[in-house]
């Protein structure tokens, strides 16, 4: 199916891009790798009047080990992150997550900026124009007055969209304490990545129409720390996560007790879900099987998926949250031990 028609601009500078976006009267969309947006446009889920290609903007593709932090340009392809020796060694969760996105072709085209801004997914929403001829309109697709067809709210109540955030790198980055730099009409700002997500499936990404993510920064991990990312999907390639778990753990060099721990779940809600209990359970303690079990239990509780993916039930995804959390913790500990 052909793409819908749109006006196209390819600015050479960030300022120009922001200006174009802020001047756009109708819907404008930023395109970088295009692996998410082009499919949405072919399915006529998104039909922007203007597409602004930011790939031509120089200086947004880099992986730099700066003072106390890793800096990744927003246009850096996922495959570069997956292959970066530095990231593989110091930020294994991020390398794993980047390498777990889609298929090699998606990772070659797709950028880190695009992956963290991935649109949410739901079997009822990610469908074709023909599907929409056969079924009532979806709330995420339609107007604010349209009802969610899978989980309709009671009369008089505000609609909610529960579509699933299905990015791989975001949970890893959040577990690693990442921040992002955003350029907008009012200038530049830096926010914790976790604030990028609204939790509202209809408008999942907290960016203003003329905002562009320009950089991701991750604090350098302390000594005696590591991270891991585990993903469940039916096939080992192409598929989006049905569950993702990112874990980052730092141990005290002397005592071996846990200094910091972070567990973040993907694909269980409209945003990445931080298992805040995890640090409470582990901090200051020697990590035992029993404690890992408790964190798994906490992940189980924190995961509240709904029946909006075709491949498996929410109960199963919840159950996997526990199993994979435990495995991811063990994997991170294993790396620390072997270092």
């Amino acid at each position: 199916m052909s793409l819908p028609k749109f006006d196209y601009q390819a600015p050479q500078t960030l300022d120009e891009a922001v200006l174009l976006l802020s001047k756009a009267k109708k819907d404008a969309k930023v395109i970088a790798g295009g692996t998410d947006l082009v499919v949405a446009m072919k399915q006529r889920r998104i039909t922007p009047a203007l597409v602004v290609n930011i790939k031509g903007i120089k200086g947004l593709e880099y992986i730099k080990n700066g003072k106390g932090e890793l800096r990744i340009g927003a246009l850096t392809p996922l495959s570069s992150i997956e292959e970066s020796e530095l990231i593989r060694e110091k930020f294994p969760a991020l390398a794993k997550a980047a390498g777990a996105v889609g298929a090699p072709q998606h990772r070659n085209a797709g950028t880190i900026g695009g992956n963290i801004c991935l649109n949410t997914r739901c079997w009822y929403y990610n469908q074709s124009p023909f599907f929409r001829k056969c079924r009532p309109v979806c709330y995420k697709f339609g107007s604010d007055k349209d009802k969610c067809q899978l989980f309709p709210t009671r009369e008089g109540k505000a609609n909610v969209c529960y579509s699933v955030f299905s990015g791989d790198t975001a949970p890893a980055l959040i577990a690693l304490g990442a921040k992002i730099k955003i350029k907008g009409p009012e200038g530049e700002k830096t926010i914790p990545l976790t604030e990028l997500y609204t939790g509202d499936g209809k408008r999942p990404i907290a960016l203003a129409p003329a905002d562009i993510v320009t950089e991701v920064t991750v604090p350098s991990p302390p000594e005696n720390s590591s991270s891991a990312y585990m993903k469940y999907r039916v096939r080992e390639a192409i598929d989006f996560p049905l569950l993702g778990v990112a874990v980052s753990i730092a141990l005290d060099a002397g005592s071996g007790t846990c200094k910091n721990a972070s567990v973040v779940l993907g694909a269980v809600a409209s945003r990445p879900v931080e298992v805040t209990e995890a640090e409470k359970i582990l901090k200051g303690k020697k990590i035992t099987e029993d404690l890992i079990e408790q964190v798994g239990e906490a992940a189980f509780k924190a995961a509240k998926p709904l029946a909006n993916l075709l491949e498996c039930s929410p109960q199963y995804r919840k159950r996997l949250a526990k199993v994979f959390t435990k495995r991811a913790i063990k994997s991170a500990l294993e790396i620390i031990k072997s270092a």
Binding site: A10, I31, T35, V38, V51, N53, P104, Q105, A109
Partner: peptide, 13 residues
């Protein structure tokens, strides 16, 4: 040099 989906690539790009 990188493998990509030409169906997802804009010709303009």
């Amino acid at each position: 040099g990188r493998a990509v989906h030409s169906c997802l690539t804009l010709a303009m790009d």
